[in-house]
């Protein structure tokens, strides 16, 4: 398992925190991880990003030369990193503020993370973690679809009825459970924020799950 994840958005949308949460989730699962920020001048007002590498093996570069996952919280970020995406990339795009009409090289999962955070979680600042939840589910689906062992194939055949594709080992994907545990660690100094952020992660996860149940995984993307 090897993931290079870029989280990008406006400064202030919480891209650095979202990255550390993913890295912390990796630690909870006993995986190797690195987190690297964009730092300095570009963070003030412009787009900010952080890169997280999650791997079953020791990590060389903490910089993403071949990113396979992207959270784009705004349109400039989606445009900036799209050229580096491939057919094997999983993209979460914030459709609350990104138009879905444009043709993209790789089709993103469009998730209205700002709206979900605002209306469902009642705290617009949790949009970053809604996106993290969505990414975890999307990566699960991707890992499942590319897993060639027999149980995975069986699961895929029955996926439409059950609606729940994934029961992969923790060493193959980041799990929702570890992200929720990571939340407790990340907000240990502000315990009043733990529950709301957990809810946000869960909401993003459930959004992708529900969309995939409704339309099938290839349609949603």
């Amino acid at each position: 398992m090897y993931n290079e994840i870029i989280i990008a958005g406006f400064g202030g949308q919480g891209v650095l925190l979202a990255g550390t949460l993913i890295a912390q989730a990796a630690i909870e699962q006993g995986l190797h991880t690195t987190w690297f920020p964009s730092y300095g001048a570009e963070m003030r007002g412009g787009t900010a990003n952080s890169t997280v590498v999650v791997s079953a093996d020791e990590i060389g570069s903490p910089l993403a030369f071949n990113p396979n996952a992207l959270i784009a919280l705004n349109e400039p970020s989606l445009n900036k990193f799209m050229p580096r995406m491939t057919e094997k990339s999983v993209i979460i795009a914030n459709s609350s503020i990104i138009s879905q009409d444009k043709e993209y090289k790789v089709k993103p999962y469009f998730v209205p993370v700002t709206d979900i955070a605002d209306k469902e979680i009642k705290n617009v600042r949790t949009a970053n973690l809604v996106a993290v939840g969505a990414l975890i589910k999307a990566l699960e689906i991707f890992a499942d679809a590319n897993c060639e062992d027999e149980p995975a194939q069986k699961r895929r055949q029955s996926a439409d009825e059950e609606g729940d594709l994934c029961d992969l080992e923790a060493s193959k994907v980041l799990t929702l459970k570890s992200a929720l545990t990571a939340c407790e660690k990340a907000f240990a100094s502000k315990p009043e924020l733990i529950e709301i952020n957990k809810k946000a992660i869960q909401a993003g996860y459930e959004y992708i799950k529900a969309e995939v149940q409704k339309f099938g995984s290839s349609e949603v993307r």
Binding site: T20, T34, W35, Y39, P62
Partner: peptide, 9 residues
């Protein structure tokens, strides 16, 4: 700058 700025366990 890379080793200084990156987070690791």
């Amino acid at each position: 700058g890379v080793v200084g700025q990156m987070m690791e366990p």
